[in-house]
């Protein structure tokens, strides 16, 4: 099977280069990171001074009466995010956070055409007599992940390097490590979403509709989870239907919590891959 997957992957650069959905996704993701980078670069001075105060407050143990933004971070956010802002370069910290927030939207677009157009054009009928369905399914999953890793790594690295020039330059080594961590975390965080798109593609043979379903389901679950929580804690269950719940653990400086996040990524991914492969190996094409 490994050989088959390798041979399927050998065609992927050519397929990706000529697939408008994949091109659109790659451009969108590059643009998203670029826009954040430009915004942060322009606001670097303000952000640095605000966070300088934030750090002092954080060091003093988050006393009452701080800046409104600091108050929001203190009261409303996850401890992982507070730790990120308090212990790292503010520009990179915000970049990391925003990149992670936008990842689901982008990565689902990047992965929206794994088998969809093959199924709708029935080109899959030229391929299936030559490879197993499982190999095709896994190869396309891997191909989407590689695309995501390439585009996110390059974007994060280039923009991160530029942002570092706007920082105070106090802990440059730590900044580089954070940048590498960002690249790694985004690569990992994309996996469950790519798996989810692989699963959706198996029953919706259209890239755009698959993306709409995924983002629609996400929005619905988010609203039910967040708004429903006002009514009853039971509604929080909906938040756990999407892999977004692992983002704060993945941001965490605490290794144990980080590993919990990685475990969550593995669990969501395995469920989607299992279901996707189950359907794909049995469905009529």
């Amino acid at each position: 099977m490994t050989g088959e997957i390798r041979r399927i992957l050998s065609f992927e650069p050519l397929r990706a280069k000529n697939n408008s959905v994949i091109i659109l996704a790659l451009i969108s993701s590059a643009l998203y990171f670029l826009v954040i980078g430009i915004y942060l670069g322009r606001s670097a001075e303000d952000i640095n001074s605000t966070f300088s105060e934030f750090r002092q407050i954080a060091d003093a143990g988050f006393q009452e009466g701080e800046l409104p933004f600091v108050g929001w971070i203190k009261d409303k956010t996850d401890p992982a995010l507070r730790s990120l802002f308090a212990n790292h370069s503010p520009l990179l910290g915000i970049f990391f956070w925003l990149a992670l927030m936008g990842t689901p939207w982008i990565v689902m677009l990047v992965a929206s055409d794994q088998t969809a157009s093959e199924l709708s054009r029935k080109h899959i009928r030229f391929i299936l007599p030559r490879v197993t369905r499982r190999s095709l399914f896994l190869a396309r999953l891997l191909s989407s992940w590689i695309s995501w890793v390439v585009i996110s790594s390059c974007s994060l690295f280039l923009i991160g390097m530029v942002l570092l020039q706007f920082g105070d330059g106090e802990n440059r080594d730590s900044d580089y490590i954070l940048l590498l961590r960002m690249i790694g975390v985004l690569a990992i965080y994309g996996i469950p979403f790519i798996s989810m798109m692989a699963f959706i593609n198996t029953f919706i043979p259209n890239a755009f509709l698959s993306y709409l379903l995924a983002t629609g389901a996400w929005s619905v679950f988010w609203v039910l989870g967040a708004a429903g929580a006002w009514i009853s804690d039971g509604f929080k269950f909906f938040s756990y239907l999407m892999p977004t719940v692992v983002k704060y653990p993945l941001l965490s400086d605490d290794p144990q919590r980080f590993l919990q996040g990685v475990g969550g990524v593995a669990a969501y991914s395995l469920v989607f891959v299992f279901l996707g492969n189950l359907i794909f190996s049995r469905r009529d094409v």
Binding site: K122, H123, I124, R125, F126, P129, R130, V131
Partner: peptide, 15 residues
């Protein structure tokens, strides 16, 4: 599939 046992001209597949 995949071992060259069978090949097919499908009616409606497109390149």
């Amino acid at each position: 599939p995949g071992k060259g046992a069978i090949s097919i001209l499908p009616q409606d597949a497109r390149f």
